[in-house]
Design a binder for these strands. Structure first.
Lengths: 236, 236
DNA sequence: GGAAAGCATGTTGTCAGACAAATATGAGTT
DNA sequence: AACTCATATTTGTCTGACAACATGCTTTCC
């Protein structure tokens, strides 16, 4: 039984609850870097759970790089520099402003990626982008869902930037915004004329990259995402 | 002292090994989203470990959002959109190109953050930046280490951007690049004249932000980071 | 015959205890 | 003061057990 001291929610599994509490103490500074955690057995009695539960919780935090354990010594709190992940707040807690910020971040990265793609993308990368544009054009004609080529197009720009970290990060953000993006696409298809407009924007980006014009590629991408955000109802 | 950090080449613990193998299978597509994992007991015999070890491994992957379990049903593979973290490859495996890319990513974000700070940073934020500049100037005069105000300055820019996600992401990247940055600072102090040059660049950024000139803030930051990269020996 | 209730089985969640392995600690010796 | 060694502490791993929940099948009742 977990003590009521820690307002634990029932539905979550015990290790997750314990991990959340410890994480809280880590972020609030109650547990400072370099300090040792109490022994697992002590934590177990303190939280009123078995050692197995404690170990699963610690395992999560260790995997994230927040803690470090050594057999015979104990568990130590490691500083921020040890963090292995960039964690986004839980999507359930996203409010409108948070979403706008996320979208803004994406726009920064994607416009810069487009500029880099124009500056130094391989001809192969650019050719792949061209295929995506053609596929999307066909989707607009047929009035079908152009989701796959659309996603491919945006991923292609990231890859053409030649920066692997940037690519991975954009992939992550896009995954997070996926629901939002799909909503936008659905919304677009219902408004006649919008798909054609979107296609024109995509083609503008593609032409700028193909023409090896970084400035233009950045601007076209920025404009495109600004328009897309407006279509989504986000104030940017 | 210093060897303490590098001495810890601890043999991987069993749960970490199992987690690594499963992660490999997830990324390679051997385990596809929607599929069910074998029961924990089966995995245990397959890997030749106890169920507790398997559970700790699964706990890590569940925390990362790669798996999802339900009592009585089993463990399911979740698609990419479920990922909760943006994971950077292990710092030990960083090669020169990878570092350059990481630095490039940081430059993108920081220059844009500076522009946003100029465009919409609160007067409070800007004032704090001014204090950092003064503190750094004093450090240059005294020839002491200006690490703290320097970090504060860069963090201040991120905060002044008003975008929380951007701020967190920059914090994460800076933590990762911290060793690199400290190296740069040490290198700077040994080369006479460099600290003054750095200070001049910082002041340039600050003046642009204070003057509410986004374009200039972006350019000054970009120039500063480009110079810093060159001082570090990275080809940008 | 069909639908609802109950039972059997499989799976995850949690607990308890045990031992091994590595480390810290302290007493005793040189 | 420094070294040695036995002891205690702590993490790493294993085993077995039971509870909670889900699924499918059987039984029962209309």
């Amino acid at each position: 039984m977990l003590s009521d001291k820690y307002e634990l929610k029932q539905p979550l599994r015990l290790p997750d609850q314990v991990a959340a509490i410890l994480m809280e103490e880590l972020e609030s500074g109650t547990l400072k870097p370099g300090e040792m955690l109490p022994p697992e057995m002590e934590l177990a009695t303190k939280f009123g759970v078995s050692r197995a539960v404690i170990r699963e919780a610690l395992s999560q935090l260790k995997a994230e790089g927040l803690l470090e354990s050594q057999q015979g010594r104990g568990v130590m709190v490691v500083g921020r520099s040890g963090r292995r992940f960039f964690r986004l707040e839980d999507p359930e807690k996203f409010n409108s402003q948070s979403l706008t910020h996320l979208y803004e971040l994406r726009a920064i990265l994607e416009s810069e990626a487009a500029a880099m793609a124009a500056a130094r993308g391989s001809t192969r990368d650019v050719a792949k982008l061209g295929e995506c544009v053609v596929a999307m054009a066909r989707a607009v004609e047929d009035d079908t869902i152009g989701a796959v080529p659309d996603l491919d197009f945006h991923r292609g720009i990231a890859e053409a930037s030649g920066n692997h970290h940037l690519c991975e990060l954009m992939q992550f953000l896009n995954d997070k915004l996926l629901v939002l993006i799909q909503e936008a696409r659905e919304h677009s298809r219902q408004n006649p004329g919008v798909p054609r407009q979107v296609q024109k924007e995509h083609e503008g980006i593609y032409r700028a990259i193909e023409a090896r014009n970084p400035q233009k590629a950045r601007k076209e991408t920025l404009d495109h995402l600004r328009m897309a955000a407006r279509r989504l109802g986000l104030e940017i």
